[in-house]
Computed example of a mutant assay.
Amino acid sequence: TASSACLQSSNGPVKKSMREKAVERRNVNKEHNSNFKAGYIPIDEDRLHKTGLRGRKGSLAICVIVLLFTLAVINLLITLVIWAVIRIGPNGCDSLEFHESGLLRFKQVSDMGVIHPLYKSTVGGRRNENLVITGNNQPIVFQQGTTKLSVEKNKTSITSDIGMRFFDPRTQNILFSTDYENHEFHLPNGVKTLNVQKASTERITSNATSDLNIKVDGRAIVRGNEGVFIMGKTIEFHMGGNMELKAESSIILNGTVVVSTARLPTSSSGDPPGSDDWVRYKLCMCADGTLFKVQVTSHNMGCQVSDNPCGNPY
């Protein structure tokens, strides 16, 4: 090298003169004084340690920030809706209030939509105010188990497979109940019509000043294990089909009995008895009101038969 004290050759080291050494020392000092990059090593920028979030980490950070911003906006909208609907203010809710007993009270007209009541839930109004429940062109249905309450435009119906009971929550007095085993069945005051599919009771009565009307759309069957007794000032049966009376021993009709024959089947006068497959009977009555039948075997046959239940022919 140029900075070596002696030169090497094939014949050995060569000694420098004093002048050559001074010139070499001057050049070395000059190079050292003009070298401002001493101690620095040039390195590519891609190999340096980079700070911050770059690449996938940066994309993930942007997604997290966008998600948090979206949740914040949704939370703000929900808060505004709650504030507008429930009307929460410094004094509490203007539209509803909660009580320590679990009661939720609405203070204004509310649209509750779909209600899923909990166990033994209660819906009621204030003591001196009416509870108005309306639906948008469809019935309102409250259902708990097998019991269902339907509020429609012209009627309110309650159906249950296990029975029902209406009572005053303040006095606990039972106003109406279908429990026939513990007490007698009574309709509440003001109720004049009872619509049931099947009823089992010992007695059906009406007030002394009102009529008892039993109407059915199809077929009505009244039976009793110990007999059926129908009593009243006037008893009328209006039927669109047939009327059938069955008894194991006898049927007793007391009072004036009128049977309209306008709808009873009749045969033409020219057909002799027994000319077809019809078996005809004549309805007869004893003096005490006992009814019995006599088979018709000839024209103008009366009720004077020997085996009648009256004792003497009548």
Rank of each mutant, 00 (worst) to 15 (best):
F142L: 02
Q143A: 11
G145R: 00
G145S: 02
T146F: 05
K148C: 02
K148P: 00
L149F: 04
L149S: 01
S150Y: 03
S150R: 01
V151T: 03
K153A: 10
K155M: 10
T156A: 06
S157W: 05
S157D: 06
T159P: 01
S160Y: 00
D161H: 07
D161V: 06
G163E: 03
M164A: 05
F166L: 08
F167I: 09
P169I: 03
R170W: 15
R170H: 15
T171A: 04
Q172T: 09
Q172I: 06
N173W: 08
L175Q: 03
L175A: 05
S177Q: 04
S177K: 00
S177V: 02
S177C: 07
Y180H: 14
Y180P: 04
E181T: 13
E181W: 12
N182P: 06
H183E: 11
H183G: 07
H183C: 12
H186M: 08
H186S: 09
H186C: 08
P188E: 05
P188Q: 05
N189G: 12
G190R: 01
V191D: 07
V191C: 07
K192C: 13
T193Y: 04
L194W: 04
N195T: 08
N195V: 09
N195H: 09
V196Y: 03
Q197Y: 05
K198W: 02
K198V: 01
S200E: 10
S200G: 11
T201F: 08
E202T: 13
R203E: 11
R203G: 10
R203K: 15
I204F: 04
I204A: 07
T205E: 11
S206K: 03
N207W: 14
T209P: 01
D211R: 06
D211C: 09
L212N: 03
N213C: 13
N213V: 13
I214M: 04
K215R: 15
V216F: 01
D217W: 07
D217H: 13
G218A: 05
G218K: 07
R219Q: 08
I221H: 10
I221N: 09
V222T: 08
R223C: 13
R223Q: 12
R223A: 14
N225Y: 10
G227F: 01
I230A: 05
I230V: 07
M231I: 15
M231D: 15
G232E: 03
T234D: 13
E236M: 13
H238P: 08
H238W: 15
M239T: 14
G240F: 02
G240M: 03
G240P: 00
N242T: 11
N242F: 11
E244I: 12
E244A: 08
E248Y: 11
S249F: 12
S250H: 12
I252F: 13
I252S: 14
L253K: 03
N254E: 14
N254F: 08
N254A: 11
T256C: 10
T256V: 08
T256R: 07
V257P: 04
V259D: 10
A262S: 14
L264K: 12
L264T: 12
T266I: 08
S268E: 15
G270H: 14
P273M: 04
D276W: 06
D276T: 05
D277K: 09
W278G: 15
W278D: 15
V279E: 10
V279A: 12
R280S: 02
R280V: 04
R280C: 03
R280E: 03
R280Q: 06
R280A: 03
L283P: 01
